[in-house]
Amino acid sequence: MKLGKKAFLFDLNGTMINDMEYHLDAWYHMLNNDLGAGLSREVVKSHMYGKNDELLVRVFGEGHFTAAQMAEISREKELRYQEVYKPHLELISGLKAFMDKAVNQGVLMAIGSAAIPFNIDFVLDNLQLRHYFKTIVSADDVVLSKPHPETYLKAAAILEVAPEDCVVFEDAPKGVEAAWNAGMDSVVLTTMHTQEEFAQYPNAVAFVSDYTNPVLNNLF
C-alpha cells in the first residue's frame, strides 16, 4: 500500500454505513412484488450497481419505463429503504475516528456515490457528517456511473488532487473497477462482498471489515 495519500474518496452505501442488505431487500420486493420481474435475490444483488434508472434498464430493457416513471420508482424504493433502515443508521465502526484523523492530517475527503442526493442527504444530515467532505459527487452529477471512472475523476478534479494521490473506499466490485479505471488505489470494505470477488482488481490494496483495522494507518 502506498503511503501519504492526499485525498480519501468514499463510496457511501456499504462503505460508510452497512446498509446494503436493506437496499437489497427494498429492490427485491420492488422489482418482484411491484414490477413483476420474477428475479432471485442473487440476481437482484448482481444488478445493484450504478444509477437506479440504469438498474431498471438492465432488468426490464431500454424504453420499458419513461424517465418520469423511473424517477418515481426510484424515489419509492428509497423511501421504503429509508423507513426500514433509519432506526439502524450508524457509521461503520471506527469511521468517525478515521475521518477525524484525516482532518487532523490535512487529508481531503469527498463522497463519490451512485446514490441520488435524496439518499446521500438522508445519511449526511441524520449523522451530521457534511462538514467532513469538500465535495459530493452523486448520481445526478455524472453522465456515466460506475464502473466508468467519471465519479471519482470528477471528485479528484474538484479537490485538485491527482488520481494517483487518491485512495477510494469501496464495497462493490464495480466500484473498485471504477477506481481502477480512474488510476486510483482502493480499500475494500467487505460488508457485502467477499475478498475473492475482487481478485481481478490489482488496485485493491487492502480488505477491511471496518475502520478499526490498523492497516489503514499506512494511508497517512
Rank of each mutant, 00 (worst) to 15 (best):
K6C: 00
L9W: 02
T15R: 00
I17Q: 04
I17R: 04
L24E: 03
A26Y: 10
W27E: 07
Y28E: 10
N33R: 14
L35Q: 12
L35T: 13
L35A: 13
G38R: 11
V43M: 09
M48E: 08
Y49I: 11
E54K: 11
E54G: 14
L56S: 08
R58C: 11
V59P: 04
F60M: 14
E62K: 15
T66M: 12
A67E: 15
A67F: 11
L79I: 15
L79K: 15
L91R: 08
L91P: 06
A97C: 01
D100P: 04
D100A: 09
A102G: 15
V103F: 09
Q105T: 12
G106S: 11
V107H: 03
I111G: 09
G112Q: 01
G112I: 01
A114I: 03
A115S: 15
F118T: 07
N119P: 03
I120N: 05
I120G: 06
V123H: 06
V123L: 06
L124C: 11
L129A: 03
K134S: 13
V137R: 08
P147S: 05
A156Y: 08
L159R: 07
E160S: 13
E160P: 01
D165G: 10
D165L: 06
D165P: 11
C166Y: 04
D171R: 08
A172S: 15
P173S: 02
G175A: 07
W180Y: 14
A182P: 01
S186E: 00
S186V: 01
S186C: 14
L189F: 04
T190R: 10
T191A: 07
T194H: 13
T194Q: 13
E197F: 07
Y201G: 00
A206E: 05
V208M: 05
Y211D: 02
P214A: 03
L219K: 03
